[in-house]
Write a protein that binds this DNA or RNA. Sequence first.
RNA 1: GUCCCCGUAGCUCAGCAGGAUAGAGCAUCAGAUUCCUAAUCUGGAGGCCGCAGGUUCGAAUCCUGCCGGGGACACCA
Length: 589
Amino acid sequence: MTLLDDLSARMGAAFAAQGLDPALGKVRVSDRPDLAQFQCNGALAAAKMQKRNPRELAGLLAERLLEEEIFREVTIAGPGFLNVNLADDYVAARLGNQARAEKTTQDWQVAPAEKIILDYGGPNVAKPLHVGHLRAAIIGESLKRIFRHVGHTVIGDVHFGDWGLQMGQLISELAIREPALPYFDAEKTGDYPATSPVTLADLEAIYPVASAACKTDTARRVAAQKATFDLQAGRPGYRALWQHFVLVSRAAIEAEYNDLGVTFDWWKGESDAHPLIDQMVNDLRTKNLAEDSDGAVIVRVKRDDDRKEVPPVMLVTSEGSAGYHTTDIATIIDRKEAAAPDRMIYVVDQRQALHFEQVFRAAHMAGYFPQTHLEHLGFGTMNGKDGKPFKTREGGVLKLRDMIDMVTDKARDRIEASGMGAGEDAATVAEIARKVGIAALKFADLSNPRTSDYVFDLDRFTAFEGKTGPYLLYASVRIRSMLAKADPDGTTGTGATLLLSTDEERDLALILLRFDESLRAAVEKRMPHIIAEHCYALAQAFSRFYTNCRVNDEPNQSIRASRIRLAGIAGGQLDQALDLLGISVPERM
RNA sequence: GUCCCCGUAGCUCAGCAGGAUAGAGCAUCAGAUUCCUAAUCUGGAGGCCGCAGGUUCGAAUCCUGCCGGGGACACCA
């Protein structure tokens, strides 16, 4: 049970003793830390219901609560707010238990544990990762870690964009450039070359040209559609060529994700869903869900009680191709067959909300998967300072690689300017700079609520003061460094009695006891920024403690041991919370 | 045209299953280091919570309308 649940239960019992609903006894962290640690506003609502005097009722509740030793102080303020302070002994003992259990899981029930497929990728063949992929990767990786931490089984799927018109565009463009390649010989039989005819650089150069040509040139567009159709129909040369595109692209993209600390369990692609499509369309026809319309096949997903217009799902285009609605529905079937998950969660830009609504409805209507267990977690866009989606100074899309280089360079400049890297070799400094830069980027993203847009500001993110990733890393590194000096063999703090003799120690202990609450809120709302907030509050509480409470040279051995233990608990929790955000901490800074 | 999101301190943003004096970071002003990493800590100043109604004992939070910004609306994914 979390601390707040525990306090609420005790408060609820006091309400029940007055013949009131125990739910009124909900206790939360005080809005007025100058007055108390915790508060309960239930007496106001209760008094209203029973037409009683709220202060009088609050007085009775306070009297009852004070019979319990864990409450040091229960006072009444204003019209009937109950303010609660806990006994230090209780806080210390509770924190001791929390730490002694060496728990890697939470102090509350996630019920029931589920198998979840988490989709947070969406990179495309032939296109380098860019800032548009950043948020899905960062948020998804964090959610994966958070879900696993609380007991869910999570399969992270990159959902590679390896299908569709873009493949036809690439093939038809290459056919113009290199018509002699064997892949374009429709008469050819036998094997194709094992090595790719193109490098990633080739693909990245070809794609924008092909895409642009198709927009302006009808003949090119028709050719691309034809190539797409032939590829999907299984033309051997095209399949072989496409396989090269996929492998070359994946190697590069996976490496970039790794640099960000983002990994996937599955590298399935849209192509994996393709073999299921024909049967699925037939099935939908059999179920009278699919119908012909203007030469295309659609599924109407509108409902009578809709307040908005929900257009039909485009199942098969009038050209005979499968669109991305189709692929996404088939992917649901594919995932269900491959892993039998309880839930599928998509971490995708908020602008796709209508698309997923349509897809989920269709999947539900067809009986493929219950809509209640299909979740689209939308996120806001990362904007430039002009409030519009982020672009480079030249107006182009910034590659993820360039962004990582940018933050890493800034971090290294700062390390060198501050002299912190002095005495370290170049490789160590580079590694620290990389971690600091990534932490800056990730924390800047994750400290915003998932659904909010936010402004990318390199100077602000890489400024190492204030509410930033580097501040958190610094706190962690400082804890480790201090403990290494005060308790080199790691034995002094073990089992030491926690003594909360100062405000700073008490505040730190109370923050540490709130971790489970943050974790639960983050899971329920699917909002990593709640963990990010906790990290920051914890780092701040530690910094105050560190400034005001001596450890290494504290003469009183009981206090010294207690502080070592407290710092150890704080360091452990901070590192764990940062890990849940996907942020890794350097040994030194 | 329909629908969705946003509008809170100079800037960037929290808070929104209604509660006390609306918080944080940056910037700004004033302080703190014989001592465990000052990338730190302490304090001050700074707000018609877009506007107008409504519900309520109580609204930044819920409802309605309006203004301003962004986005989505079957054959690109």
